[in-house]
Amino acid sequence: MRQFLGATLLLGLTAATSLNAADTAPGKALFEATCVACHGAAGQGNPALQAPALAGQQAAYLQRQLLNFRTDLRGTAAGDSGGAQMAPMAKGLADDAAVTAVAEYLASLPAAKATPALTGGDAAQGAKLYQSKCGSCHGGKAEGNPALNSPRLAGQSDVYLQTQFNHFKQGKRGYQQQDRFGRQMRMMANSLNETELQDVLAYLNTLGAK
């Protein structure tokens, strides 16, 4: 009886795995055709191209950002060269269903880990700053919080995070009235100075480093 139950459980797990693979297959095909050159075969990102890690990010967040690019809520500000490159790629996806498929595929991948590129910063001080200013939305370990529409930060490139943080401060992100969550982050970005940002990034590197 025990052997039968074990075999039945194994069969169920195998079937579930196959079903999940089948569910994400369309998104994988779209990702490989459209995104892999910049974001990497495993969605790990490419800091040299300012392409963020996408693997393991929340599907809802990825979907929202793709839709923002498609509707010019992001990527049209002067000086945002990375956003300007991303906008036509997002618009190259056929429809909302394609956007959802790509987002769900990326969310199904193991969360990315990053190699720190920035030096300096006080990680201990950054931990205090992060918990007081960022943790209530992005999670105690920077794992993100879907209920608050806050993305995962752990495992993201420090160079990319620095660039995007400064884009919020400079009005290159969160500049459209309809981008409610972007505008919220723009307000928070103005609560940290450059030294404090470096400390927070040093702390985040301890959470998602390879």
Score class of each variant (00 low, 15 high):
196 E>M: 06
27 G>S: 01
108 S>F: 07
74 R>F: 09
43 G>F: 03
18 S>Y: 05
37 A>V: 09
175 Y>V: 12
124 A>F: 12
13 L>H: 06
112 A>Q: 02
172 K>G: 15
174 G>R: 00
58 Q>H: 15
30 L>H: 02
44 Q>N: 07
36 V>M: 10
71 T>D: 14
190 N>P: 07
170 Q>I: 01
108 S>I: 06
184 Q>H: 14
3 Q>R: 15
5 L>A: 14
120 G>A: 11
104 E>K: 08
1 M>N: 14
31 F>C: 05
25 A>G: 10
7 A>W: 00
46 N>G: 04
79 G>L: 08
193 N>Q: 09
99 V>H: 00
150 S>D: 04
174 G>A: 08
125 Q>R: 15
106 L>G: 01
64 R>K: 14
94 A>L: 03
112 A>S: 11
51 A>C: 10
192 L>E: 05
74 R>N: 10
207 L>I: 09
11 L>N: 07
69 F>L: 13
200 V>H: 01
37 A>W: 00
41 A>Q: 12
114 A>W: 04
55 A>M: 03
113 K>C: 06
34 T>S: 13
84 A>G: 10
74 R>L: 09
154 A>W: 02
8 T>G: 11
97 A>Q: 12
82 G>W: 03
14 T>H: 10
92 G>A: 12
2 R>Q: 12
34 T>P: 00
134 C>M: 12
175 Y>T: 10
151 P>V: 03
52 P>Q: 07
36 V>C: 01
100 T>Q: 13
42 A>Q: 14
34 T>V: 07
93 L>E: 03
35 C>Q: 02
22 A>W: 05
76 T>Y: 11
150 S>T: 04
69 F>P: 00
75 G>M: 11
204 L>T: 06
68 N>D: 14
82 G>C: 00
84 A>Q: 14
47 P>R: 05
81 S>W: 01
58 Q>F: 14
110 P>C: 01
65 Q>W: 04
54 L>D: 01
122 D>Y: 06
5 L>G: 02
21 A>M: 07
50 Q>C: 08
167 H>I: 03
47 P>C: 04
38 C>M: 05
183 R>E: 08
144 G>Y: 07
73 L>Q: 15
195 T>K: 13
160 Y>M: 03
137 C>F: 14
181 F>V: 14
178 Q>Y: 07
133 K>E: 04
13 L>K: 05
139 G>D: 08
159 V>N: 03
117 A>T: 08
75 G>H: 06
13 L>P: 05
179 D>Q: 06
180 R>L: 15
206 T>A: 09
47 P>H: 08
80 D>L: 07
205 N>V: 05
111 A>R: 07
209 A>W: 08
199 D>R: 00
117 A>N: 04
159 V>Y: 04
106 L>S: 06
139 G>R: 12
94 A>D: 07
183 R>T: 14
55 A>Y: 05
94 A>G: 01
182 G>R: 07
200 V>D: 00
40 G>C: 03
172 K>P: 02
133 K>R: 15
36 V>A: 13
4 F>H: 14
158 D>Q: 03
103 A>V: 09
111 A>T: 10
38 C>H: 04
